[in-house]
C-alpha cells in the first residue's frame, strides 16, 4: 500500500471512530439516524479504498439509502422524530461486555496475519483459484460476480431468501394489521 492509500485509509477510519462515538453519546434520535447514514457512507468509502468496489456500492445503496430511509420512517411512525429524550440503562454492564469483547478481539488479532499482506493464508488458498481460473470457467471479468453468482451462488440464493423473508415479515407485521380507519 502506498502512502496515500494509507492516509485515506486512516482518515476514513478516524472519521468512522468519531462518528460512532458521537452516535453512542448523542441524545437525539434524529441526529443518531443521520449520523448513521454518514457512518454508512464512510464505510462505503473505506471499502472503495480497500478495493471492495462491489461491497462499497452495496453499502452505499443499502446503508445510506435504504436503511436510513427505513429508520427515518420508523422515527416518524413512532413519533420520536421530534422527541429527543433518550436515556441509558445498565451502562456499567454494557461497558464491561464491550471491554470483554475488545480484549477477546485484541487477543485474536495479535496472531492475525499482517494487514494487506499478500502472503496471508486468506489470500493464498482459495482466492487465487478464483482469480486465475474464473475467467476461463465462467468468462466474466468481475470475479466478485463470478464467485457471488456461481461458485457461491448457493449463498446468494440464501441471501435472496433472507431479503424475501424480511419482506414477508414486514408485510405480516405492518400491513392489514394496523387499526387504521378507512378513509
Amino acid at each position: 500500500m502506498n502512502a496515500i492509500e494509507l492516509v485515506v485509509n486512516f482518515t476514513l477510519l478516524g472519521f468512522l471512530l468519531v462518528t460512532a462515538l458521537h452516535i453512542s453519546q448523542t441524545n437525539r434520535l434524529f441526529r443518531a439516524v443521520m449520523l448513521f447514514g454518514i457512518y454508512s457512507l464512510l464505510t462505503a468509502s473505506l471499502f472503495v479504498s480497500l478495493d471492495a468496489v462491489d461491497v462499497a456500492f452495496t453499502e452505499a445503496a443499502v446503508g445510506t439509502c435504504i436503511a436510513t430511509i427505513l429508520m427515518l420512517s420508523a422515527l416518524s411512525l413512532t413519533g420520536s422524530r421530534k422527541e429527543v429524550r433518550y436515556r441509558r440503562k445498565n451502562a456499567a454492564f454494557a461497558v464491561c461486555v464491550s471491554i470483554a469483547l475488545g480484549v477477546a478481539l485484541a487477543i485474536g488479532i495479535m496472531d492475525m496475519p499482517q494487514f494487506a499482506d499478500p502472503n496471508a493464508p486468506a489470500n493464498l488458498h482459495v482466492a487465487p483459484y478464483y482469480l486465475q481460473d474464473s475467467y476461463s470457467e465462467i468468462g466474466i471479468p468481475n470475479v466478485v460476480t463470478s464467485v457471488l453468482a456461481s461458485y457461491r451462488g448457493y449463498d446468494t440464493l440464501g441471501e435472496v431468501v433472507v431479503i424475501f423473508t424480511a419482506g414477508i415479515g414486514v408485510i405480516a407485521l405492518l400491513t392489514g394489521r394496523s387499526s387504521k380507519p378507512k378513509d
Partner: peptide, 23 residues
C-alpha cells in the same frame, strides 16, 4: 431474479412503512 426480488422487497418495505398508521 435477485434484482426482481430485491427491488420488490424495497418497494414493499417502503410501502408498508408508509401505509402504516399508529392507532
Amino acid at each position: 431474479g435477485v434484482g426482481m426480488t430485491v427491488a420488490s422487497v424495497m418497494v414493499i418495505l417502503f410501502l408498508s412503512f408508509a401505509d402504516y398508521r399508529q392507532p
